Simulated assay, not measured.
Amino acid sequence: MVLLREGMCPGLDRELLRGLRGADIRTVEGLVSSDIEELAQKCSVSYKALFAIRRVLLAQHAAFPVSGADLYEELLSSTAILSTGNPSLDKLLDSGVYTGEITELSGGPGSGKSQVCFGLAVNISHHLKQSVIYIDTTGGMTASRLLQMLQTETSNTQEQMEALQRIHVFRLFDVHALLDCLYDLCGGGLQRASVGGGSVKAVVVDSVSAVISPLLGGKQNEGMSLMIQVAAVLKTMAKDFSVAAVVTNHVTRSSGGEVQPALGASWSHIPRTRVLLQPAPSARPFSCCSLRSATLIKSSRQPCDIREDFDLQWWSRGEEGPSGKRKLDETHDESSLVL
């Protein structure tokens, strides 16, 4: 509630303020929602003067509606769709990960979360010639693995090195260091990383739960506050700088024994898209099979609970995919690489 004060806008003087209070109008909300003609008679002021004051107060304190057409135009001008480099995952994600949003990959150990993040980073840096911020909180990121994946994309050593230079890696192992890094990126770090290497199109946090989960539960109220801060800065970064924020998350068991993403109900509202990675149903237990199943558990574009199986070795193939039938470039269409 905003109280009316003398001088808030031209014409709102002490005398008029006294008259409005006599009519039991003490707030901006009360004034703009009242019948102006009736109120003018009660306060003995001109209708035109009171209408002008109401209009100014509306402009200062009320949110004006935006048309659906304007929102759609903003979406078209600011959103890019970044392919993961894997056609099955792109199909599940409606062509790839979207800038301006947070996408979450959840799964247990060995489910392929990091492998998918590596593949996304390689695809953006090599094929799209854009930069990626990769925040590693588990120590699982290795330059040799990135190079191995790049070597399947090109045999040109210079192209491999240029792609590696566009992947900026931060190794951080606690939530305070993560927050400091994210705030620095918003304060100019994204622009600095873009110099000479294409603009930053994705920020990957692998994994967000590794630094937040130890602080949750029991009487550790600080953990929830820090988690909300991480969520807020990721959302702001994604929206304001048109980058895709991609985070990985661990899994837990529900009371019914079902596998679900960690970090609880509060975090579940943060990502726009959530994907659960698990061993494919066809994979034998405890085997070294690289087949994985990706299930869409939250999305604003696709039906939930749809599933796609994919092979983690897709990013380690040679000239042809694991099936030996087609090259990666043949799987790309105009909808999977929108920049």
Results as ranks from 00 to 15, higher is better:
297 I>E: 08
187 G>S: 06
191 Q>F: 00
135 I>T: 01
214 P>E: 00
106 S>W: 05
78 S>R: 12
287 S>M: 01
192 R>F: 01
25 I>L: 09
51 F>H: 11
317 R>L: 10
93 L>I: 13
182 L>R: 13
148 Q>E: 04
128 L>Q: 06
165 Q>T: 07
222 E>C: 08
175 V>L: 01
153 E>N: 05
226 L>E: 02
242 S>N: 12
142 T>H: 03
83 S>Y: 10
80 A>F: 02
278 Q>W: 01
151 Q>I: 02
158 Q>N: 11
331 T>D: 07
114 S>V: 06
158 Q>M: 15
5 R>A: 13
204 V>C: 12
207 S>Q: 07
306 I>S: 07
10 P>K: 03
183 Y>H: 14
88 S>V: 04
280 A>E: 15
170 F>N: 11
141 M>L: 11
146 L>C: 04
210 A>D: 05
102 I>Q: 11
45 V>S: 12
320 E>S: 10
9 C>M: 06
9 C>F: 10
84 T>E: 12
193 A>Y: 07
255 S>L: 13
143 A>K: 15
132 V>H: 02
209 S>F: 02
208 V>S: 04
217 G>A: 07
77 S>M: 04
32 V>T: 08
53 I>V: 05
111 S>M: 07
168 H>N: 06
213 S>V: 08
270 I>A: 13
80 A>N: 07
88 S>E: 10
163 A>W: 10
76 L>K: 12
70 D>F: 13
39 L>S: 11
280 A>G: 01
257 G>C: 01
2 V>W: 03
35 D>L: 00
144 S>F: 05
236 T>N: 14
57 L>G: 06
103 T>Q: 00
195 V>F: 14
265 A>F: 12
213 S>E: 02
16 L>D: 08
169 V>P: 14
155 S>M: 06
75 L>Q: 14
148 Q>D: 04
243 V>L: 03
298 K>M: 14
275 V>S: 09
32 V>I: 02
295 T>P: 10
247 V>N: 04
17 L>H: 11
194 S>M: 00
202 A>F: 09
273 T>V: 02
215 L>H: 14
273 T>H: 15
96 G>Y: 04
28 V>D: 15
7 G>M: 02
37 E>H: 09
261 P>Q: 02
224 M>Q: 10
68 G>P: 05
96 G>L: 11
223 G>V: 03
21 R>N: 14
130 Q>R: 07
183 Y>M: 01
90 D>R: 04
268 S>T: 06
